[in-house]
């Protein structure tokens, strides 16, 4: 509740008078507390000068004219601060408005992501996707077809924040409008590439990795469009290898083709898909090494897939002092024994 100006005037006169009589630190402390009150009540600097003049005119009725005039002068000098102060307030209000808008948009964006991960008996899946700021330029998608094949996509829009998020929503609609029947990863990327090429400004790039897991034969088919390589964990040899798929970034040329790769997945093996926010995690000593990442994953490999990704995220977040510089997405698909 804002105090009226006259009440402030009264208070100021009172604390100033006390200070002039006692000249001690407590008086100055009251002045400091008063300055908070002044800000709370949105009183501008020139008004504070006038408060002061009013008060000392009361205490010193025979204030020399020159001293009085000097306050008029000071008042004029403070006008610039007064104007800057009001602008600051108006900009702050505008910022709040923008923040509210972005919060609404960010909530909307969350609804674009799959609400639940499709489950098949033979697969253990873990996903984590955390935006660096409120909106994300990362996207992931899961789909299960009538043969229980699981399609998984992970995409990264170069850049972050609102522009990347807008682009990401387009990818979501493009994926939704693909033909109903399951496409092979290569054909799917070719389709998406055409949509992106037609609809996205030439300075926006999207990388993507798309894979399809067939639980009937335990094969993983995948293709990539300039996306950060993932990892393949081999249970038998207890080692990681790179999951790389050669292919141009989406949206560069219309008739790009994407090579399809495949892997036979044995029990205990797992596939790691990620966005570059994971590997470009920066610490004071520079980017983390991909080996460091696999070391973290290895450390938690005995846990369920969801707990692995949660723990790896926590460790990397911690390494960066809990400040994400880029959107972070990590997916693990493990064949259960």
């Amino acid at each position: 509740m804002a105090d009226s100006f006259s009440l402030m005037q009264e208070q100021y006169a009172k604390i100033l008078q006390t200070y002039l009589q006692e000249k001690n630190e407590i008086g100055l402390y009251h002045a400091q507390q008063f300055s908070k009150k002044v800000l709370e009540n949105q009183i501008s600097p020139e008004e504070v000068v006038s408060l002061h003049l009013d008060a000392i005119e009361k205490f010193f009725p025979d204030l020399p004219q020159g001293a009085r005039d000097s306050f008029e002068f000071l008042l004029e000098v403070m006008m610039g601060y007064g104007m800057a102060y009001r602008e600051h307030q108006s900009l702050r209000d505008k910022q709040k408005e923008l923040e509210t808008e972005i919060n609404v948009a960010a909530n909307m964006q969350q609804t674009f992501l799959p609400k639940e991960i499709p489950s098949v008996d033979s697969l253990d899946v873990g996903v984590i996707s955390v935006p660096a700021s409120k909106m994300s330029g990362d996207y992931y998608h899961f789909v299960k077809d009538e043969n229980n094949c699981i399609g998984v996509a992970i995409a990264d829009i170069i850049g972050k924040g609102v522009p990347a998020a807008l682009c990401m929503s387009m990818i979501k609609y493009a994926m939704d409008s693909l033909p109903e029947q399951r496409l092979q990863p290569g054909a799917l990327l070719e389709n998406l590439n055409r949509v992106v090429e037609q609809n996205v400004a030439s300075n926006m790039f999207i990388t993507m990795m798309y894979g399809s897991y067939d639980p009937r034969v335990h094969h993983f088919y995948y293709s990539g469009a300039g996306h950060e390589p993932g990892f393949y964990y081999n249970y038998k040899t207890d080692s990681f290898e790179e999951l790389y798929a050669k292919g141009l970034v989406l949206g560069i040329t219309r008739d790009t083709t994407f090579r399809e790769y495949h892997k036979k997945v044995e029990p205990g093996d797992f596939i790691v898909l990620l966005s570059d926010g994971v590997t470009e995690c920066r610490t004071d000593e520079g980017f983390i090494e991909r080996e460091e990442l696999t070391r973290f994953i290895h450390q938690y490999k005995h846990l369920p897939a969801q707990e692995i990704v949660n723990n790896v995220f926590y460790q990397l977040e911690k390494l960066q002092g809990f400040q994400l510089r880029d959107d972070f997405s990590l997916i693990i698909l493990r064949r259960k024994v």
Binding site: E46, E47, S50, E72, L75, E76, M79, G82, M83
Partner: peptide
């Protein structure tokens, strides 16, 4: 005087 300063500004 505060308002005078505002008006002149």
């Amino acid at each position: 005087s505060v308002d005078q300063a505002r008006i002149t500004t």
